[in-house]
Design a protein around this nucleic acid. Structure first.
Lengths: 262, 262
DNA sequence: CGTAGATTTGATAGCAGTCAAACATCGTGG
DNA sequence: CCACGATGTTTGACTGCTATCAAATCTACG
């Protein structure tokens, strides 16, 4: 019942700007999990981009309840979206990996929204808040992609809601590990042994799945003992993904599809 | 742990088509919770509309796992989006009220998606599945509204995820009742005493909040005893919204804003 | 008036939360 | 090179919120 959101000696933002990388040479774009864009589209995106933002581990990228603000594309590093109750209970809404688009909510929603915080050192591509409208007006197909991204992110949250609402601790953790591993793998973050970076603490897992830290630990321990996963040195490997999928009752498609990158 | 999704003698679809209402005379559009659209936009929407769909109580509007399919705007009646696990556990993702746009997910998402089921008799405005692209290409500002709707729906799910993950039973129920009452009220579904239609069973509440039916009932009972709500004859009234808001730790904006209607 | 679905209630069980404390890691400074 | 503090991981003991089981109403309606 206590989603610890302890202030955690936050290293206070320290957001420094820096020379930007040209979109045409964006390292993410080369990955085959992203749609290939024609040059004019990439040039257009480039024209919207106003810079890059580098953020330290554990710093807030967007404060909870912020309105307006910029739009971002996560270039490197991991982050998460979250909401908190006034007594400190925290719920992580989903994790953000490279290629994810950030800030749509703050743009549209009138209600108090969620915060975004870095899990590792993070580099973000920055767009002014009105580029959303610019995109719609100028490049309908890009706008269509924005809609795709919004719908896709909602699908992720839907899946988590199913987990938190109806799966038990082991099932929830199994699915989370599975999905994170899939996402990281598709970004080719894995090494030759299939281990992907995992800058997430057990407290984060607990907060993402509506569990307590202690119970998360015990469940994690049990899963590892069964050989279902292994977390060492900030990396996650899954010796038996099929077993995890079966445990989580998750029969998602295996065929990897490409997605938009803005 | 058992989100009962008992097949419930489903009255098997019975989806009949019928003469359509002209968008220019759409009764929803008159409500002041919706954006006012210029005539050309309404004409454009009208040109996309291919008919109306009437669905019986408890019938499936979109089967779980369906791909493609039409797009809908809910004209009258209530419905809900849901996902189920293979053993029958069901999670309701959110409730759908008049004016809500349905089908975005099925259009975009490649993963298995969610189903949509009617809570009452329902009338839907039907659009072919490629009107989404049509909208983006022809009316950028309408496309912008689609994005708004997608982001807004995600915000609703985010809020529910916070509830299910971190609020206890009483808090969850308090917030659900509060939000549903607000939404129904803004649609002017309430009578003079402030009671709004409430075509929802306790099983639905349980499935929406990740609770068991029995515990939902007991908690509901306790809340009503405290005078926090009253459900009679399929109508919900909230004698003390402020107390509910405080219990749920919910400090959403009170100012009613308008939203898009497509 | 009988039946199916929905609501209630009481009893019991268990998954997960809370409390407390030991242990492990890691960067920093003496 | 090791003490030290901060953060994160583990464990054990105990509690409790919520699930499950069973069964009695209550309601709507053909």
């Amino acid at each position: 019942m206590k989603g610890a959101a302890k202030p955690s000696a936050r290293k206070n933002g320290e957001q420094r700007a820096q020379a930007a990388v040209a979109c045409a040479r964006c390292p993410l774009r080369r990955l085959d999990c992203f749609d290939a864009y024609a040059n004019d589209r990439i040039d257009f995106i480039q024209s919207l981009k106003i810079g890059e933002l580098h953020v330290d581990t554990d710093a807030e990228i967007i404060p909870e309840g912020a309105h307006g603000g910029h739009l971002y594309t996560l270039l490197s590093g991991w982050a998460f979206r979250f909401k908190t109750l006034s007594d400190g209970r925290r719920q992580i809404l989903n994790f953000l990996l490279p290629g994810d688009f950030i800030g749509l909510q703050q743009k549209m929603s009138a209600d108090a929204t969620h915060g975004v915080r870095a899990l590792s050192e993070v580099r973000l591509c920055v767009f002014p808040r009105d580029s959303l409208w610019e995109i719609h007006r100028t490049y309908p197909d890009l706008a269509y992609d924005v809609t795709w991204l919004a719908a896709h992110e909602e699908a992720l949250v839907d899946e988590t809601l199913l987990s938190v609402g109806r799966r038990n601790a082991a099932e929830r953790i199994a699915l989370l590990l599975l999905l994170l591993h899939q996402r990281a793998s598709s970004l080719q973050l894995g090494d030759d042994s299939g281990a992907v970076p995992f800058p997430i603490t057990q407290q984060h897992i607990a907060d993402a799945l509506g569990l307590s830290l202690v119970h998360t630990n015990k469940t994690l321990r049990r899963l590892e003992a069964t050989g279902l996963h292994r977390i060492r040195g900030g990396r996650l490997s899954l010796p038996n993904p099929a077993a995890l999928a079966s445990l989580a009752d998750h029969y998602g498609r295996t065929a990897t599809i490409t997605r938009p990158l803005i």
